[in-house]
């Protein structure tokens, strides 16, 4: 077990280097540069721009810039935003807690509602109730999140007036409910379908027949024997999904004006702030890797047939 974890942690190093390099190269390849973006519409002396670039180290070749970035990173320095002069670390520490809160809300919503729907449908597979819920999940999967987002915003904020259309900078829990529902709705549909299939399949398993033959109450047959087996694939999905929720909040955060990671990345991209983009993306990658490691370990807890050596 310990060796397995160590190996997985070591595997993160090449993934980490690879993903930073990739994002770094992409930022480099994008047209436009942060210094020129700083000036906006004004005409600036090219010599002045060249001087600024030299000061910021942006005139160096790609590999050199990358090595400089990595070198700073290992000293705990995420770099500084060119336009605002704020350290990237500050931007991350401002934006991340909000996105984490949003993602956890969405995650909770996904788990509770998705699994419930899945069990409810799977226990009576191929009935009207099952079909109806399947269609509902299909609708959720087919609607892009920005459509659903604007739709719910229009309905709950503008028509009913139950919530504010925009989330304030504090991002209070109550304000995050609606964005969380929008963010989680796609995963919810997948979780519901996965649970439904898993439950319907395991219902026919031999050990379920044994459990009934043992004279166990229905509650126990389903709650213990069925669920322990049916949730294994769902947990696997949920783990990677948590990472995806953290990273995939860009659109939702844009619609509801949540000042989270998605918003920060979007702003940074607009201003070609390479250091900010790479920093945030790298952090998301790390979160994703850690989440999938935790899932794999959890997998062994849920299914004793899997042993890591």
């Amino acid at each position: 077990m310990g060796r397995y974890v160590a190996r997985r942690l070591l595997q993160m190093i090449p993934v980490f280097i690879g993903s930073t390099l990739l994002v770094f190269a992409m930022m480099y390849a994008l047209p436009g540069d942060p210094v020129r973006a700083l000036a906006g519409e004004q005409t600036v002396d090219p010599a002045q721009i060249a001087q600024m670039k030299k000061d910021l180290g942006l005139d160096l070749p790609l590999w050199h810039q990358y090595l400089n970035y990595l070198g700073n990173l290992f000293q705990g320095d995420f770099g500084t935003q060119i336009a605002s002069g704020r350290p990237v670390a500050d931007i991350i520490s401002d934006a991340f807690p909000i996105t984490i809160r949003l993602a956890l809300f969405a995650f909770t919503f996904t788990v509770l509602v998705g699994i419930s729907i899945g069990i409810f449908a799977g226990l009576k597979a191929d009935t009207l109730r099952d079909r109806g819920l399947l269609v509902l999940t299909l609708v959720l999967i087919s609607i892009p999140s920005f459509v659903l987002g604007y739709l719910l915003q229009y309905f709950f904020a503008f028509q009913l007036g139950w919530v504010d259309p925009n989330v304030s900078t504090e991002a209070a829990p109550g304000e995050l409910l609606l964005p969380a529902v929008v963010l989680g709705s796609l995963s919810l549909a997948y979780v519901a379908r996965l649970t439904r299939t898993s439950v319907a399949e395991n219902l026919r398993a031999d050990y379920m027949r044994t459990a009934v033959a043992k004279g166990l109450p229905r509650r126990r047959v389903i709650g213990v024997h069925l669920m322990r087996n049916s949730l294994i694939p769902v947990v696997t999905f949920l783990g990677t999904d948590l990472g995806a929720l953290l990273g995939g909040a860009v659109v939702t955060e844009g619609i509801f004006n949540v000042q989270g990671v998605g918003y920060a990345v979007f702003e940074a991209l607009r201003h070609r702030e390479g250091a900010t983009v790479v920093g945030i993306v790298t952090l998301i990658v790390v979160v994703y890797l850690v989440a999938s490691l935790i899932v794999d370990l959890l997998y062994a807890v849920l299914d004793p047939r899997i042993r890591y050596a």
């Binding site: 031999d206 027949r209 043992k214 024997h225 087996n229 294994i232 849920l302 047939r305």
Partner: peptide, 19 residues
């Protein structure tokens, strides 16, 4: 079931809960 009448199944591997 289980108390008065009990059943032994053919394939014990699949008839016992694996987890």
């Amino acid at each position: 079931r289980g108390q008065k009448i009990a059943m032994i199944f053919q394939d014990a591997l699949s008839s016992l809960n694996p987890v």
